[in-house]
Protein backbone atom coordinates (compact mmCIF):
# COMPACT_ATOMS: atom_id res chain seq x y z
CA UNK A 1 0.00 0.00 0.00
CA UNK A 2 1.09 3.57 -0.60
CA UNK A 3 0.74 6.79 1.39
CA UNK A 4 -0.63 9.31 -1.11
CA UNK A 5 -1.03 12.12 1.41
CA UNK A 6 0.84 12.40 4.70
CA UNK A 7 -0.95 12.79 8.03
CA UNK A 8 0.45 14.87 10.89
CA UNK A 9 2.13 12.02 12.73
CA UNK A 10 1.22 8.53 11.61
CA UNK A 11 3.61 5.74 12.40
CA UNK A 12 4.03 1.99 12.55
CA UNK A 13 3.67 0.69 16.12
CA UNK A 14 3.33 -2.66 17.85
CA UNK A 15 3.32 -3.72 21.50
CA UNK A 16 6.50 -1.75 22.06
CA UNK A 17 10.21 -2.37 22.33
CA UNK A 18 11.06 -3.85 25.70
CA UNK A 19 14.46 -5.04 26.87
CA UNK A 20 16.45 -1.95 25.87
CA UNK A 21 15.40 0.72 28.33
CA UNK A 22 18.67 0.19 30.19
CA UNK A 23 20.32 1.71 27.08
CA UNK A 24 17.99 4.70 27.22
CA UNK A 25 15.90 3.32 24.35
CA UNK A 26 12.33 4.25 25.18
CA UNK A 27 9.73 1.55 24.51
CA UNK A 28 7.48 3.35 21.96
CA UNK A 29 4.57 1.10 20.87
CA UNK A 30 0.91 1.85 20.15
CA UNK A 31 -0.55 4.43 22.53
CA UNK A 32 -3.84 2.49 22.64
CA UNK A 33 -2.67 -1.11 22.96
CA UNK A 34 -6.23 -2.33 23.42
CA UNK A 35 -7.41 -0.82 20.11
CA UNK A 36 -4.32 -2.23 18.40
CA UNK A 37 -5.12 -5.67 19.81
CA UNK A 38 -8.76 -5.46 18.70
CA UNK A 39 -7.81 -4.43 15.16
CA UNK A 40 -5.50 -7.45 14.98
CA UNK A 41 -8.02 -9.78 16.67
CA UNK A 42 -10.62 -8.93 14.00
CA UNK A 43 -8.22 -10.22 11.36
CA UNK A 44 -7.14 -13.26 13.35
CA UNK A 45 -3.61 -11.81 13.60
CA UNK A 46 -1.34 -12.14 16.58
CA UNK A 47 -2.73 -9.40 18.80
CA UNK A 48 0.60 -7.58 19.01
CA UNK A 49 1.23 -7.51 15.26
CA UNK A 50 2.33 -4.06 14.05
CA UNK A 51 -0.39 -1.61 13.01
CA UNK A 52 -0.45 1.93 11.71
CA UNK A 53 -1.34 4.52 14.31
CA UNK A 54 -3.19 7.45 12.75
CA UNK A 55 -3.84 10.92 14.16
CA UNK A 56 -6.11 13.53 12.64
CA UNK A 57 -5.50 14.86 9.97
CA UNK A 58 -4.53 11.33 8.97
CA UNK A 59 -2.74 9.85 5.98
CA UNK A 60 -4.59 8.98 2.79
CA UNK A 61 -3.72 5.41 1.94
CA UNK A 62 -3.95 3.76 -1.48
CA UNK A 63 -4.04 -0.02 -1.68
CA UNK A 64 -1.89 -1.22 -4.53
CA UNK A 65 -3.23 -4.77 -4.25
CA UNK A 66 -6.40 -6.34 -2.79
CA UNK A 67 -6.11 -6.64 0.99
CA UNK A 68 -8.07 -7.55 4.11
CA UNK A 69 -8.01 -4.74 6.66
CA UNK A 70 -9.61 -3.58 9.91
CA UNK A 71 -9.82 -0.24 11.73
CA UNK A 72 -10.10 0.35 15.47
CA UNK A 73 -9.68 3.07 18.08
CA UNK A 74 -10.72 6.65 17.35
CA UNK A 75 -13.56 7.35 14.94
CA UNK A 76 -11.96 9.69 12.41
CA UNK A 77 -14.88 9.05 9.98
CA UNK A 78 -13.06 6.73 7.61
CA UNK A 79 -14.13 6.23 4.01
CA UNK A 80 -13.01 4.13 1.09
CA UNK A 81 -13.34 5.82 -2.27
CA UNK A 82 -15.56 8.36 -0.52
CA UNK A 83 -18.00 5.79 0.91
CA UNK A 84 -18.09 5.67 4.72
CA UNK A 85 -16.77 2.45 6.25
CA UNK A 86 -17.18 1.18 9.81
CA UNK A 87 -14.61 0.60 12.52
CA UNK A 88 -14.36 -2.86 14.10
CA UNK A 89 -15.28 -4.81 10.96
CA UNK A 90 -13.14 -6.64 8.43
CA UNK A 91 -13.04 -4.93 5.07
CA UNK A 92 -11.78 -6.46 1.84
CA UNK A 93 -10.31 -3.67 -0.23
CA UNK A 94 -9.56 -3.79 -3.93
CA UNK A 95 -6.52 -2.63 -5.83
CA UNK A 96 -6.59 1.19 -6.15
CA UNK A 97 -9.03 1.68 -3.28
CA UNK A 98 -8.21 4.81 -1.27
CA UNK A 99 -8.74 4.96 2.48
CA UNK A 100 -9.11 8.38 4.02
CA UNK A 101 -10.32 10.01 7.20
CA UNK A 102 -12.61 13.04 7.23
CA UNK A 103 -13.40 14.30 10.72
CA UNK A 104 -12.28 13.44 14.24
CA UNK A 105 -15.62 12.34 15.70
CA UNK A 106 -14.39 10.61 18.84
CA UNK A 107 -11.05 9.61 20.27
CA UNK A 108 -7.55 10.66 19.32
CA UNK A 109 -5.92 7.72 17.54
CA UNK A 110 -7.13 5.23 14.98
CA UNK A 111 -5.41 1.96 14.14
CA UNK A 112 -5.17 0.24 10.78
CA UNK A 113 -4.30 -3.45 10.77
CA UNK A 114 -3.90 -5.71 7.75
CA UNK A 115 -4.42 -9.47 7.58
CA UNK A 116 -1.02 -11.09 8.14
CA UNK A 117 0.59 -7.81 9.18
CA UNK A 118 3.04 -5.41 7.56
CA UNK A 119 6.32 -6.61 6.18
CA UNK A 120 9.23 -4.76 7.69
CA UNK A 121 12.38 -5.55 9.56
CA UNK A 122 12.32 -5.50 13.31
CA UNK A 123 14.73 -3.19 15.07
CA UNK A 124 15.74 -4.51 18.49
CA UNK A 125 12.97 -7.11 18.27
CA UNK A 126 10.13 -4.67 17.53
CA UNK A 127 8.48 -3.00 14.56
CA UNK A 128 7.58 0.10 16.59
CA UNK A 129 8.86 3.40 15.30
CA UNK A 130 11.29 5.11 17.67
CA UNK A 131 11.26 8.70 16.48
CA UNK A 132 14.10 9.79 18.79
CA UNK A 133 16.51 7.12 17.61
CA UNK A 134 15.21 7.39 14.04
CA UNK A 135 14.89 3.63 13.95
CA UNK A 136 12.26 0.91 13.78
CA UNK A 137 8.97 0.95 11.93
CA UNK A 138 9.06 2.46 8.47
CA UNK A 139 12.54 3.99 8.09
CA UNK A 140 12.50 5.17 11.71
CA UNK A 141 10.12 8.03 11.02
CA UNK A 142 6.47 8.95 10.66
CA UNK A 143 4.82 8.13 7.35
CA UNK A 144 5.20 10.50 4.44
CA UNK A 145 3.75 10.92 0.99
CA UNK A 146 5.04 8.29 -1.42
CA UNK A 147 5.93 5.70 1.25
CA UNK A 148 5.27 2.14 0.05
CA UNK A 149 4.52 -0.34 2.80
CA UNK A 150 4.66 -4.03 1.96
CA UNK A 151 2.12 -6.47 3.36
CA UNK A 152 3.16 -9.89 4.60
CA UNK A 153 0.21 -11.76 3.18
CA UNK A 154 0.60 -13.24 -0.29
CA UNK A 155 -3.03 -14.40 -0.32
CA UNK A 156 -5.23 -13.41 -3.22
CA UNK A 157 -8.19 -11.57 -1.72
CA UNK A 158 -9.72 -10.70 -5.09
CA UNK A 159 -11.88 -13.84 -4.96
CA UNK A 160 -13.64 -12.29 -1.93
CA UNK A 161 -14.64 -9.25 -3.92
CA UNK A 162 -18.02 -9.40 -5.65
CA UNK A 163 -17.11 -6.76 -8.19
CA UNK A 164 -14.92 -3.74 -8.32
CA UNK A 165 -16.15 -2.41 -5.00
CA UNK A 166 -14.70 -3.12 -1.57
CA UNK A 167 -16.64 -5.44 0.73
CA UNK A 168 -17.43 -5.18 4.44
CA UNK A 169 -17.57 -8.61 6.09
CA UNK A 170 -20.78 -9.12 8.06
CA UNK A 171 -19.69 -9.24 11.70
CA UNK A 172 -18.45 -6.87 14.31
CA UNK A 173 -17.07 -7.18 17.81
CA UNK A 174 -17.90 -5.81 21.22
CA UNK A 175 -15.17 -3.26 21.60
CA UNK A 176 -16.47 -1.56 24.73
CA UNK A 177 -15.22 -4.30 27.01
CA UNK A 178 -15.65 -2.34 30.19
CA UNK A 179 -18.76 -0.27 30.52
CA UNK A 180 -17.95 1.13 33.94
CA UNK A 181 -17.58 4.81 34.74
CA UNK A 182 -15.31 6.68 32.38
CA UNK A 183 -12.95 7.70 35.14
CA UNK A 184 -9.26 7.02 34.88
CA UNK A 185 -8.22 4.58 37.59
CA UNK A 186 -4.85 5.25 39.17
CA UNK A 187 -2.57 3.58 41.68
CA UNK A 188 -0.80 5.75 44.24
CA UNK A 189 2.81 6.43 43.34
CA UNK A 190 5.76 6.30 45.72
CA UNK A 191 5.51 10.04 46.37
CA UNK A 192 1.70 10.10 46.75
CA UNK A 193 2.06 10.92 50.42
CA UNK A 194 4.08 14.00 49.62
CA UNK A 195 0.85 15.63 48.42
CA UNK A 196 -0.92 17.66 51.09
CA UNK A 197 -4.34 16.44 52.23
CA UNK A 198 -5.89 19.24 50.20
CA UNK A 199 -3.87 18.27 47.09
CA UNK A 200 -5.01 14.65 47.47
CA UNK A 201 -8.61 15.80 47.66
CA UNK A 202 -8.07 17.97 44.59
CA UNK A 203 -6.48 15.06 42.73
CA UNK A 204 -9.35 12.68 43.35
CA UNK A 205 -12.29 15.06 43.08
CA UNK A 206 -11.58 17.73 40.49
CA UNK A 207 -11.26 17.44 36.68
CA UNK A 208 -7.81 17.70 35.10
CA UNK A 209 -7.78 19.33 31.69
CA UNK A 210 -5.39 18.02 29.04
CA UNK A 211 -3.45 20.99 27.64
CA UNK A 212 -2.23 21.46 24.07
CA UNK A 213 1.07 19.92 25.15
CA UNK A 214 -0.17 16.38 24.68
CA UNK A 215 1.56 13.94 22.37
CA UNK A 216 3.04 10.46 22.24
CA UNK A 217 5.61 11.45 24.88
CA UNK A 218 3.20 12.72 27.49
CA UNK A 219 0.17 14.78 28.42
CA UNK A 220 0.65 18.01 30.35
CA UNK A 221 -2.34 18.77 32.51
CA UNK A 222 -3.53 22.31 33.15
CA UNK A 223 -4.44 21.92 36.79
CA UNK A 224 -4.38 24.39 39.64
CA UNK A 225 -0.98 23.73 41.23
CA UNK A 226 -0.98 20.83 43.68
CA UNK A 227 0.70 21.55 47.00
CA UNK A 228 3.44 19.26 48.24
CA UNK A 229 4.85 18.62 51.68
CA UNK A 230 8.56 19.30 51.94
CA UNK A 231 10.68 16.36 50.86
CA UNK A 232 14.15 15.72 49.53
CA UNK A 233 15.06 15.86 45.86
CA UNK A 234 14.75 12.65 43.92
CA UNK A 235 17.57 11.20 41.92
CA UNK A 236 16.60 9.87 38.46
CA UNK A 237 15.05 6.43 38.32
CA UNK A 238 13.02 4.44 35.83
CA UNK A 239 9.45 5.48 35.06
CA UNK A 240 6.55 3.74 33.32
CA UNK A 241 3.83 4.34 30.74
CA UNK A 242 1.05 5.98 32.75
CA UNK A 243 3.29 7.43 35.46
CA UNK A 244 1.88 10.77 36.65
CA UNK A 245 4.68 13.11 37.71
CA UNK A 246 4.35 16.33 39.67
CA UNK A 247 6.39 19.10 38.05
CA UNK A 248 8.09 21.81 40.14
CA UNK A 249 5.30 24.27 39.24
CA UNK A 250 2.69 21.99 40.83
CA UNK A 251 1.26 20.79 37.51
CA UNK A 252 1.01 17.21 36.39
CA UNK A 253 2.37 15.32 33.41
CA UNK A 254 1.28 11.82 32.42
CA UNK A 255 3.97 9.81 30.67
CA UNK A 256 2.80 8.08 27.50
CA UNK A 257 4.24 5.54 25.01
CA UNK A 258 7.28 7.59 23.95
CA UNK A 259 8.21 8.56 27.52
CA UNK A 260 11.82 8.94 28.55
CA UNK A 261 13.15 5.88 30.33
CA UNK A 262 13.94 7.73 33.57
CA UNK A 263 12.80 10.75 35.48
CA UNK A 264 13.41 12.57 38.71
CA UNK A 265 10.07 14.22 39.47
CA UNK A 266 7.80 12.93 42.23
CA UNK A 267 5.60 10.08 41.00
CA UNK A 268 2.28 10.86 42.59
CA UNK A 269 0.31 8.16 40.78
CA UNK A 270 0.21 5.69 37.88
CA UNK A 271 -2.67 5.17 35.47
CA UNK A 272 -3.58 1.48 35.49
CA UNK A 273 -2.69 -0.39 32.29
CA UNK A 274 -6.30 -1.36 31.59
CA UNK A 275 -7.13 2.35 31.33
CA UNK A 276 -4.23 3.33 29.05
CA UNK A 277 -6.70 2.87 26.20
CA UNK A 278 -9.11 5.47 27.61
CA UNK A 279 -6.24 7.81 28.27
CA UNK A 280 -4.75 7.36 24.79
CA UNK A 281 -8.09 8.31 23.22
CA UNK A 282 -8.38 11.61 25.13
CA UNK A 283 -7.64 14.82 23.27
CA UNK A 284 -6.31 18.22 24.27
CA UNK A 285 -9.06 20.17 25.99
CA UNK A 286 -10.76 17.09 27.43
CA UNK A 287 -10.97 16.54 31.17
CA UNK A 288 -9.68 13.58 33.14
CA UNK A 289 -11.21 12.37 36.39
CA UNK A 290 -8.89 10.26 38.50
CA UNK A 291 -10.01 7.62 40.92
CA UNK A 292 -7.71 5.70 43.24
CA UNK A 293 -7.78 1.95 43.07
CA UNK A 294 -5.58 -0.88 44.33
CA UNK A 295 -3.10 -3.31 42.83
CA UNK A 296 -5.51 -6.27 42.84
CA UNK A 297 -8.27 -4.38 41.04
CA UNK A 298 -5.82 -2.96 38.47
CA UNK A 299 -4.52 -6.43 37.67
CA UNK A 300 -8.04 -7.92 37.47
CA UNK A 301 -9.19 -5.26 35.03
CA UNK A 302 -6.18 -5.87 32.80
CA UNK A 303 -6.70 -9.61 32.95
CA UNK A 304 -10.36 -9.18 31.95
CA UNK A 305 -9.42 -6.91 29.08
CA UNK A 306 -6.88 -9.38 27.74
CA UNK A 307 -9.25 -12.32 28.12
CA UNK A 308 -11.80 -10.37 26.12
CA UNK A 309 -9.27 -9.74 23.34
CA UNK A 310 -8.32 -13.42 23.23
CA UNK A 311 -11.94 -14.55 23.02
CA UNK A 312 -12.60 -12.12 20.20
CA UNK A 313 -9.50 -13.25 18.39
CA UNK A 314 -10.64 -16.89 18.52
CA UNK A 315 -14.18 -16.03 17.44
CA UNK A 316 -12.91 -13.91 14.55
CA UNK A 317 -10.52 -16.63 13.41
CA UNK A 318 -13.44 -19.06 13.15
CA UNK A 319 -15.52 -16.56 11.19
CA UNK A 320 -12.63 -15.75 8.89
CA UNK A 321 -11.99 -19.39 8.09
CA UNK A 322 -15.10 -19.30 5.90
CA UNK A 323 -13.40 -16.65 3.78
CA UNK A 324 -9.65 -17.01 3.79
Amino acid sequence: MRIIKAGIQDSVQDRGRYGYQHLGVNPSGAMDQYAMQLANALLGNETDEAVIELHFPASVILFTQPALIALAGADLSPSINGEPVPLYQCIVVNKNDALQFHRPLSGARAYLAVHGGFSMERWLESKSTNLKAGAGGYRGRSLQKGDEIELNSKKDYSSLLPGKNFRILPWTIDHAADTGPREIFVLPGNEWDRLTAEAKRQFTTTPFLITKLADRMGYRLGNEPLAMLPGGELISSAVNFGTIQLLPDGKLIILMADHQTAGGYPRVAHVITAHHSRLAQKRSGEALYFRLTDQARAEELLQKQQQHVRQLQHACLLKLQQYV
Partner: peptide
Protein backbone atom coordinates in the same frame (compact mmCIF):
# COMPACT_ATOMS: atom_id res chain seq x y z
CA UNK B 1 7.51 -0.11 45.80
CA UNK B 2 5.15 -0.54 42.85
CA UNK B 3 5.64 1.52 39.70
CA UNK B 4 2.06 1.13 38.54
CA UNK B 5 0.63 -2.33 37.86
CA UNK B 6 3.33 -3.63 35.51
CA UNK B 7 6.59 -2.75 37.24
CA UNK B 8 8.19 -2.23 40.61
CA UNK B 9 11.22 -0.36 41.87
CA UNK B 10 13.87 -1.66 44.23
CA UNK B 11 15.28 1.48 45.82
CA UNK B 12 18.73 1.25 47.43
CA UNK B 13 18.96 4.78 48.78
CA UNK B 14 18.12 7.70 46.42
CA UNK B 15 21.67 8.96 46.01
Amino acid sequence: FPLGDSALTVDFGNR
